[in-house]
Every structure is written in structure tokens, then in C-alpha cells.
Design a protein around this nucleic acid. Structure first.
Lengths: 199, 199
DNA sequence: TCAGATTTTGAACAGTGTTCAATATATTTG
DNA sequence: CAAATATATTGAACACTGTTCAAAATCTGA
């Protein structure tokens, strides 16, 4: 039975992935080493190479999981808001909150240069498309209700992607603004500003 | 004469700083190692520790130089533009061009976590204040000419800081958009959009 | 049970940062 | 000038990275 082997193999792979996810969320990318991951998974560092080509290979496998986690968090935080601009703001705010909670995941998503390693090149797309995907339905709703034109939506969507990425980069990497309160205030202003009519 | 010693000491420090700057601009932050810097400077790796606490210490000393270089580049690219929105766009575009030219400097400015190392904490401020400083005179001009209100300027200034940081992060770290042409187009649209009246 | 296949593992090598005592150089003093 | 002293430079050494590979432990099937 090959399936038996495959089941066990997938199980072990899962142990390593889980260990990597824990490390990324707690210690951050800097503490993700082959030996640290293997220790947490209960194996020798050499075993990791039997299941993965690389530690980075392993790290990028976490992106999909974190994406789903962020998606779920965002949904839970926005489902009660009224559709349209209100819910858009709730979604974008929750999206940012998620990365504030897990700065290591933000690092992995936006700071770490994966272009040199990720040969399929799909990981980069997974990351940049996350916010767009989360907001897609709401933007459609806005167009349908004639709140914004398709052209406006395209502009606002891009501006919000760039702005949220910049806000998070500056706050998480440069402590700018200086406090979390100031950050949420700035983020709120920015989102409101971009969602306003007649941009 | 203590000055003799100080002169020589500053000279040697300069050799190390120059070597680090070259490495940052050519190879990028990933190739900045104690041994690489020392090799380029013509000293042993151990000598570096007699002049600097750290390789990171050395790297952060480059921030001031790069800041000035970026400032000079921006000035040379915008001085001929007419004052106001036109020159603001020229400044911001040149600011982004500089980092596109030297991705390693962008890494150092925005990706590298210096909060944990930089105890004075001024390096972070140096970085986040650069764009504001470059644009300061133009924003004042806009307020004086009643093109924008002070409130509008505060909003636009923040939005442009966040947006440019995000644009650069996404393009340099995530190849988004996929080509340089698409990037400049997106950047141009974003700047125009934010500089428009009645935000 | 006991060969055969498979998984797990630590040794080993090359690369990081960092410290420190020894060496080489420069300076001062007799 | 020569010897003594102070200073600058350096490589060895240690602890940590990633990675490979052959040996050891384990599991499998007849």
C-alpha cells in the first residue's frame, strides 16, 4: 500500500510545517533555522532534508496557511458590518490587525525576498492578491449599487493596497507612528480618505 | 597630538564606511558581512571591531550618506519643474527612482529591522522623515498659494508617504507590478490621484 | 527470524558573527 | 640610536548558521 507511506509522509511533513508556523508567529523569521524547526518538530535537522528541499521551501508552504488564517480572521471581523464602504473599512482594518498581531507573517509576506528562491513565482502573487481577494465582493457591490464607477474602484483598490502595505511597513519596521493608537488613527484616516467619493 | 590619531582613525573608519556603501549599493544587504567589508577595505575582519561595535553599526552610519545622496538626486531631478503640484510629483517620482536604482538602500531604509539594534532610535526617524523633508517647501508653497488647505496637505502628505512606501515594497520585494513600465505607470497614477483637489 | 528496504541521524565542511590573546607596527623614552 | 612602551592589526578559536552523505536505527515482508 503506497497510501500508507504517503499518509505517514504527509503527517511528518505536517509536523515540520506546524513547527515552522509556530516559529514564524512567535519568534519571527529570524529564528527560523533548520535546527530550530527540527527541534520543535521532534526530529533531527537532517530529517528535514528528506521531506523538504530547503527551510525556505518549508517557509513558503506556510504562506498558504497564513493566507487562509488571515482570510478567516478578516471575515469574522467584518461579516456584521453593513455591505459597502463600511464593510470595506472593516475588512481592510482587520487585514492590517492580523499582521500587527503576527509581525513575522508580515515579514514573510512583504519583506522577505522570495523572488530569488520561489521558482514557480506564485508565492508573490498569493501575497499581493490577498487584499484584493478579500475586498473583491465588496468592490463589486459598490459598482453594482453605483456607489463608485469601475474606474474609481480600480484607483481606490490600488491606492488602498499601496497605502496599507506602506502603513504596515512603516509601523512594523520603523515604529512610525510611535504608538499603536496613533497607527490605528492614521490607518483609519487613510482608509476613510481613500474610500471617499470623487477621488 | 591627539588630532593626528583622530585624523588617522577617521580615515580608517572612512575606508570601512566606503566599503560598506559600495557593498550595499552593488550586492545588497545580504552580502554585507564583517569579512566582506573588511576585505573590500583592505583590513582583517577583526580590525573592524576596533573601529565599530558591529557590522550593523557600520551599516546604519551609511543611512545618513544615502539620505543625502537621495536628496541630491531628487533636487537635481525636480529643480526645473514649476513649483506646486508639478514639482511635488517630480520630487516624489525621483525619490522612488532613487530606490529603484539602489534596492539595497531601500532594504536598509525600510525592510531591515533596526529598532532592535539602533538604541538611539534616530535612524528610524531619519528614514521616515526623508520624503517629508524633500517635500516640505513645496507643501508650504501649496498652502501659501491656497492650492490646498493645511488639513488637506496633512492628509495628502501622509497618504503619499504610505503609498510610495507600499509601491516600492511591492515592486522591489514582490515584483508587483510585473514590469518597470507598469510600476511607473501605477506610481504616476497614484501620485496624481493623491495630489488632486478635494480629496 | 532475518535479510532488505527505508527512515533517521550525527559527523563533517563551509559559511556566518564575535572575542581575545598574540603579533606587528608605531611611538616615546633613556 | 636603541630599548621600552604603547597602539594597531591580526588569525586562532568558539558558537552559531546551512547542507551533504554515509552510517546507524527502524520498519517491512517473506
Amino acid at each position: 500500500m503506497l497510501s500508507k507511506k504517503e499518509i505517514q509522509e504527509q503527517r511528518v511533513r505536517g509536523y515540520f510545517i506546524e513547527a515552522t508556523k509556530e516559529l514564524l508567529k512567535s519568534e519571527g523569521l529570524k529564528s527560523v533555522s533548520v535546527r530550530n524547526i527540527a527541534d520543535k518538530a521532534g526530529y533531527s535537522f537532517a530529517t528535514l532534508y528528506n521531506y523538504f528541499k530547503d527551510a525556505k521551501d518549508l517557509v513558503f508552504l506556510c504562506v498558504k496557511d497564513f493566507r487562509e488564517e488571515c482570510s478567516a480572521y478578516t471575515a469574522s471581523k467584518s461579516h456584521s458590518a453593513v455591505a459597502g464602504s463600511r464593510r470595506l473599512k472593516a475588512i481592510i482594518s482587520a487585514y492590517m490587525e492580523y499582521f500587527i498581531q503576527y509581525p513575522g507573517v508580515f515579514d514573510l509576506f512583504f519583506n522577505e525576498k522570495l523572488s530569488e528562491i520561489d521558482r514557480q513565482g506564485n508565492t508573490g502573487g498569493l501575497v499581493t492578491s490577498l487584499l484584493e481577494e478579500l475586498c473583491e465582493a465588496e468592490w463589486q457591490h459598490c459598482i453594482n449599487k453605483k456607489l463608485f464607477s469601475a474606474r474609481e474602484v480600480a484607483q481606490k483598490r490600488a491606492a488602498l493596497l499601496y497605502g496599507t502595505t506602506g502603513l504596515l511597513t512603516l509601523y512594523l519596521n520603523r515604529c512610525y507612528p510611535g504608538s499603536y493608537e496613533a497607527f490605528t488613527k492614521q490607518a483609519g484616516h487613510f482608509i476613510d480618505q481613500q474610500l471617499k467619493q470623487s477621488s
